[in-house]
Simulated assay, not measured.
Amino acid sequence: MNDFQDRKAVVTGGAQGIGFAVARKLTEQGAQVALWDRDETLANEAAVALGANAMAVAVDIADWTSVEKATAFTLDRFKNVDILVNSAGIAGANAPLVDYPVEEFQRITQINLLGTFHVNRALVASMIANDYGRIVNIASIAGKEGNPNASAYSASKAGVIGLTKSLGKELADKNIAVNCVTPAAARTRIFDQMSQEHIDYMLAKIPRGRFLELDEAAAMICWLCSEQNSFTTGSVFDLSGGRATY
């Protein structure tokens, strides 16, 4: 068990999927959590389910102004943020690059990569001021290997890996750890955005022969968010079921 008593956390995409699983573990272990999500109704429902230590904040991470407003609101309530988990993201359409809609590529990049940059940029200052922070950015195995017919998603998640390594080095002389995880697919609502052919492809590539469980992802992410993770930073942690462990 990790001790998160009195820690303040922001979890983007916290209304569902991996984000919600992480938020649940954090609140169970004493943290106060702000669920940043574009779906305000779902975020409010999730906050109610998690209890008094959770609150919902409506935000579009692709929009810098929206992130600034969410940051101001959260800091007004929490005073500081100790933990940031960036779980918000989309899969987008599946298509060969030669046919890939330009607008769709831009949309996926704006949410997955630019959105991650926005949230990191907005909250790092609070961590520097308090000489403490734990950041976990959710990338993807696609960011390591590249999935066919998913160039936008693969490229955006590769960018998240690069951003994490860069920020980890920038903050290495401070008590702030910045890491990312590269999950294989987990059965969440993101599957609704994918073709069955693409889902079958992803499953076939996992040596474990099954998809990732949300609690498995949350367990690793929460350790990375804990005080126990006092040395490792700028690193990539595999959650791919053996698909790519480098």
Rank of each mutant, 00 (worst) to 15 (best):
191 F>L: 14
134 R>V: 03
49 A>H: 11
104 E>Y: 02
226 S>D: 14
216 E>F: 06
121 R>H: 13
92 G>C: 03
240 S>E: 07
90 I>A: 03
108 I>L: 13
224 L>T: 08
222 C>M: 07
39 D>F: 03
212 L>G: 01
209 G>W: 02
158 A>V: 10
218 A>H: 04
58 A>Q: 10
111 I>C: 05
133 G>W: 01
228 Q>W: 11
57 V>L: 08
7 R>S: 08
65 T>F: 09
6 D>H: 12
166 S>T: 08
195 S>H: 12
144 K>D: 05
110 Q>D: 11
66 S>K: 11
223 W>A: 05
29 Q>P: 09
50 L>P: 02
124 V>F: 04
244 A>M: 11
132 Y>F: 14
48 V>Q: 15
161 I>P: 00
239 L>W: 00
188 T>P: 06
138 I>T: 03
21 A>V: 07
95 A>R: 04
208 R>Y: 15
145 E>H: 15
68 E>V: 15
239 L>E: 00
58 A>S: 14
138 I>V: 13
238 D>Y: 05
55 M>P: 02
74 T>A: 09
159 G>T: 05
161 I>S: 00
101 P>F: 10
38 R>Q: 12
121 R>N: 09
94 N>L: 09
224 L>R: 00
245 T>C: 08
10 V>D: 05
183 P>C: 11
187 R>P: 03
1 M>F: 13
145 E>P: 08
81 V>S: 09
232 T>W: 06
125 A>I: 12
232 T>D: 10
144 K>M: 10
50 L>C: 11
53 N>F: 08
142 A>F: 01
11 V>C: 12
163 L>K: 00
64 W>Y: 14
199 I>Y: 09
203 L>R: 03
29 Q>H: 10
100 Y>N: 07
191 F>H: 10
19 G>K: 00
8 K>N: 11
183 P>L: 02
182 T>G: 01
66 S>D: 13
193 Q>E: 11
217 A>K: 00
46 A>R: 03
110 Q>R: 12
165 K>V: 02
199 I>K: 06
220 M>D: 06
243 R>S: 10
216 E>T: 08
101 P>R: 05
19 G>D: 08
14 G>C: 10
167 L>I: 04
168 G>I: 02
103 E>P: 02
195 S>W: 09
65 T>A: 15
27 T>W: 04
223 W>M: 13
226 S>N: 10
167 L>T: 02
172 A>L: 14
246 Y>D: 07
83 I>T: 01
73 F>A: 11
48 V>T: 14
